[in-house]
Simulated scan of single mutants.
Amino acid sequence: MSKAEIGPRMAGGKLMYNRAVRVDEPRSWLFLAGHEARDEEGGIAHKGDMAGQIRLTLRRLAETVAEGGMTMADVVQIRVVTTDLSACVAQYDVLMDELAARHCRPASLLAEVSALSDPDMLIEIEAVAAH
């Protein structure tokens, strides 16, 4: 399998997002439902803390990716939805740094919604991985 980044958008020397990621001849696809910042008891952690929710959400996403037999480097698309776009944008470096640390360079979407499934959720991330 090969991957090619198309139209990377950089900010301060860091990848903000790719406009597209081309995947040729993957063996497996993994479609990941929306993940959120849930603690070990299933409650939302880091209430009111966008950076904390971003970090934990990506950790939970990485755990699911690993359960699916892949790594975050295999993630080719993410969709980030938030209830507070300005707070998310203010913490976007956290998202970029967390993805970079996991060698994850996906095509992405960032959008604001009026509500998520739990009122304490500030962010939810879904993904697609190919290997």
Rank of each mutant, 00 (worst) to 15 (best):
P8E: 09
A107L: 05
S28W: 13
D97P: 03
I54C: 03
R102Y: 10
D93M: 02
V21S: 03
A115P: 02
H103Y: 13
R55E: 04
A111F: 10
G52W: 12
R79V: 03
K14I: 06
G7K: 11
E36G: 14
D49L: 06
E36N: 11
S28A: 11
E98Q: 11
T71E: 03
L110R: 01
S86A: 12
G48E: 09
N18Y: 01
D118N: 12
M10V: 08
R59T: 14
A66E: 10
V81Y: 08
I6F: 09
A11H: 07
L122Y: 01
G43A: 15
G42L: 10
E5I: 05
F31M: 06
D118V: 15
L56W: 02
A33C: 14
A37K: 11
S117T: 14
A111N: 09
V75R: 04
V21T: 14
G68T: 08
V128F: 11
L85R: 08
W29Q: 14
H131D: 08
F31G: 04
A107G: 06
I6Y: 01
L109S: 04
V81M: 09
L15G: 03
D24T: 06
V80T: 01
S28Q: 15
I78R: 12
C88F: 07
G48Q: 10
A111C: 05
E67P: 08
R9K: 10
E36K: 12
D93W: 02
E63H: 05
L61E: 09
G43W: 13
D39M: 11
P8Y: 05
A115V: 12
S117N: 14
V128C: 14
D49Q: 09
L61S: 13
C104E: 08
I44K: 12
Q91F: 00
L110Q: 00
I78E: 07
R59A: 13
D118P: 13
T83Q: 05
V65K: 02
I54G: 00
R19W: 04
L95I: 00
T64Q: 06
A4W: 01
V89H: 04
T71A: 03
L32P: 08
I44T: 13
G7Y: 01
K47V: 10
G12S: 13
L85G: 10
